[in-house]
C-alpha cells in the first residue's frame, strides 16, 4: 500500500497546493464572481433598455461568448494582451465569461417583476435611474442569489483552465509537484479532495438558501 500512496509525500505536497488554492484559485473565484455579478446586471439592463438592433447585437455577443470554450478565450486574451499579466487576464476572462450566464439569470429575474411595479413607477413619475435602483433591481436580484452561488462554484471548478495561460493555480501546482517527485497520485488526489471539500458544503448551503428564498416568497 505504501508504494501506491505515500503519506509523507502527501503531507509535503499540501502546503504547495494550499498556496495555489488561496493565492490563485480562491482569489480568481471571488474577484471574477464579483465582476460577473455586476457586469451581468449591466448587460441585462442594457439588453432591456437599449433599442432593438443594439439589443440584438448584445444578444449575439453574449451567445457567442457563452457558446465558445473559456480555454480558447483565455488563450486569445493572453496572446492579444501580452503586456497584461496572466492572472489579471484570467480574472477578466472568467468574469466576462460568467457575466454572460449571470445576464440570463438577471433577465429572468427582471421579467419576473410584476408589470404593476413598472406602472407604479410611471404613476409616481420616477426617473429611469430611480425606477431601476429603487424598485426593479431589489426585487429582481433577490431570487437570483442562489444561481449566482451555483455559477461561483462552477467557476471555482473551472479555475484549473488557467494553466493554459501559465497561471500556477492549485492543480498546476500539484502537477509540477508530481513531476518533480515522479509521483502524481498524492498531489492530484489531494487537489481533487480540496475541490470537493470546498464545493460540496457550499452547494449544500446554496440549496438551503434557495429553499428559504422560495419559502419567503
Amino acid at each position: 500500500m505504501n508504494d501506491i500512496w505515500n503519506w509523507e509525500l502527501a503531507w509535503e505536497a499540501l502546503p504547495t497546493l494550499l498556496v495555489g488554492f488561496f493565492t490563485v484559485t480562491l482569489l480568481v473565484t471571488v474577484v471574477s464572481t464579483a465582476i460577473a455579478a455586476i457586469l451581468g446586471l449591466v448587460i441585462a439592463i442594457a439588453r432591456r433598455s437599449a433599442p432593438k438592433p443594439i439589443a440584438a447585437v448584445i444578444r449575439f455577443v453574449i451567445d457567442f461568448i457563452r457558446m465558445t470554450p473559456i480555454v480558447v478565450q483565455l488563450l486569445f486574451a493572453y496572446y492579444a494582451f501580452t503586456n497584461i499579466d496572466p492572472l489579471t487576464i484570467g480574472i477578466a476572462v472568467f468574469g466576462i465569461h460568467y457575466s454572460t450566464y449571470m445576464a440570463e439569470v438577471y433577465r429572468a429575474g427582471i421579467e419576473s417583476v410584476p408589470k404593476g411595479q413598472w406602472e407604479a413607477t410611471t404613476a409616481l413619475s420616477m426617473s429611469r435611474r430611480r425606477t431601476w435602483v429603487a424598485v426593479i433591481i431589489p426585487q429582481a436580484v433577490r431570487a437570483t442569489v442562489p444561481a449566482l452561488g451555483n455559477y461561483a462554484i462552477s467557476m471555482f471548478k473551472d479555475t484549473p483552465f488557467l494553466l493554459s495561460i501559465g497561471v500556477v493555480e492549485m492543480v498546476q501546482a500539484g502537477l509540477v509537484f508530481g513531476g518533480n517527485h515522479f509521483k502524481y497520485i498524492e498531489a492530484i488526489t489531494l487537489a481533487g479532495i480540496i475541490f470537493l471539500l470546498a464545493s460540496y458544503p457550499t452547494s449544500l448551503l446554496i440549496c438551503r438558501l434557495e429553499k428559504r428564498l422560495a419559502f419567503r416568497n
Partner: peptide, 23 residues
Amino acid sequence: IEFFRGTSLVVQLFWFFFVLPQL
C-alpha cells in the same frame, strides 16, 4: 454523483492521465 460533480473536470482528466499509468 457528488464525487464527480465536486472534484473538477481537469483534476479527473489529470488523474486518469498522470496517476493511472503510475498504478
